[in-house]
Design a protein around this nucleic acid. Structure first.
Lengths: 200, 200
DNA sequence: GTCTATACAGCGATAGAC
DNA sequence: GTCTATCGCTGTATAGAC
C-alpha cells in the first residue's frame, strides 16, 4: 500500500492540479496575466498536455469559476449549518475573504471583474451569478439580523448586501497593492461595525 | 482665423491624444488588455509613431498614472476651494467617481490595482502614491467633519478613509460587471450615509 | 494522457527612409 | 513626427507519435 493516496483519500487528478495552479495565477496576476506555459512550467508538464484537459483557455476559465463558486457555496452552507447568529455569520463571511488575503491572493471573481470586458461571454455570465449568489446570501443574513435586532443599518437588505460585497472586494483590491493584510482586516471590521445595532 | 484651436485654446498634442485613447482603453480593458496596435488604430497612426512619443509601454503607463493623478489632485483642490462643509465635500468626492462610471469606465488606479503584480515597479510606486493622496485628503475631510459635528463614524479618520476609498473602488468594480451605474450610486450613498451624524 | 513539433497571430520594440 | 518594414518573442492552439 502506497504512502500517498492510500485508502479513501480522493485521487488528485491532473485536471485538479491544473486548476489549482491556474487559480493561484489568476488570483495574483489575473486571467489575462498568465499563460498555459506558466501553468505547464509549474507542473513540469507541456502546454499540449494542458490542452488535452482544457482545450481552450476559455474552457479553463469556465472550470475555474465553476469550482470557485462551488467551494464558496459549500463554505456558506457550512456557516449556515454551524453559526446561528446573523452578526457571527457575517464575521465568518469576512473570514472567508481574509483567508484569501492571507494567501496573498485577490478574490478570483473580484480579479475577473476588473477584466470583465475582455472575458468570454460564458465567463461573464458565471461571474455575475457568483456575485448574485453572494448578494442573496448576504441579503438573507442581513434581513434575519435586522429582524432579530442584532443588526441595524440604512437601506434595504439587498442594497446593503451589494454595498458590503463591493466594500470587501475593494478593500482586498487596494490592500493587496500594499501587501497589507491588516489594512484589509481593519477596513472589513469597519464595514461590519456599521451594521451593529448596539451603539459605540 | 480657423474655427478650431483658435485664439488661446491650448493645442492638443499628439501625446495628449495618445494618452486619451490609452487611458480609455486602460480603464475599460486594463493595462495588459490593450496594445499599441489598439491605440494606433483608434488614432489612425502606426505603432512606430506611438513609440516615438512613448518609447516603451512602461513609459506610457507612467505618463498615464501621472496625468490621472494630477487631474485628480486638481479636482480635489477645486472641491477644497469651493465647498466648505465636510459632508458636502465627500459627496463631491463620490461624484468624481460617479463621473467615471458614467463613462462606462473603471477608476484607472482601481483597475491597475488588480494588475498590480504584473506592473513595472515604477507604476506600482505611482499607484500607491495615488491611493496615499486620496487617503490623506479623505482623512482630513473626515477629521474636520467629525470635529465640526457634521460627521460621526467608528474608527480613526485614517482607517475610515481607507475603508471609504476601498468601498468606492469595489463598488465601481462590481457595478461595472452589471453595467449598472445606479448600483454604484446606491452603494456609494450607503457608504456616505454611514458617516452622517444625524440619525435616520 | 503526455510528448515533440509546429502553425499562426499578436505583442513590444527598433532601423532607417521621408 | 510619421512612415514601411522587420525582428524576436510569446500567446493560444493543433497534429500526430508514443
Amino acid at each position: 500500500m502506497a504512502i500517498t493516496q492510500s485508502g479513501s483519500a480522493p485521487p488528485v487528478t491532473a485536471a485538479q492540479r491544473i486548476l489549482d495552479v491556474a487559480e493561484q495565477l489568476a488570483q495574483t496576476r489575473g486571467f489575462n496575466g498568465f499563460s498555459y506555459a506558466d501553468v505547464a512550467a509549474e507542473l513540469s508538464l507541456t502546454k499540449a498536455s494542458l490542452h488535452y484537459h482544457f482545450p481552450s483557455k476559455a474552457d479553463l476559465g469556465r472550470a475555474l469559476i465553476e469550482r470557485y463558486h462551488q467551494v464558496f457555496l459549500g463554505a456558506l452552507e457550512e456557516i449556515d449549518r454551524r453559526i446561528p447568529a446573523a452578526d457571527a455569520r457575517l464575521q465568518r463571511y469576512v473570514d472567508l475573504y481574509d483567508s484569501v488575503m492571507r494567501k496573498n491572493r485577490m478574490c478570483l471573481c473580484g480579479m475577473l471583474a476588473a477584466e470583465y470586458t475582455t472575458l468570454p461571454a460564458a465567463m461573464q455570465d458565471q461571474l455575475r451569478r457568483f456575485f448574485d449568489a453572494n448578494e442573496s446570501w448576504l441579503a438573507t443574513v442581513l434581513d434575519d439580523g435586522r429582524a432579530a435586532g442584532v443588526l441595524a443599518f440604512r437601506g434595504t437588505a439587498r442594497e446593503r448586501a451589494q454595498m458590503v460585497l463591493g466594500s470587501l472586494e475593494g478593500a482586498m483590491l487596494v490592500a493587496r497593492a500594499y501587501d497589507d493584510g491588516p489594512r484589509f482586516r481593519a477596513a472589513a471590521t469597519l464595514v461590519l461595525s456599521d451594521l451593529r445595532a448596539d451603539p459605540a
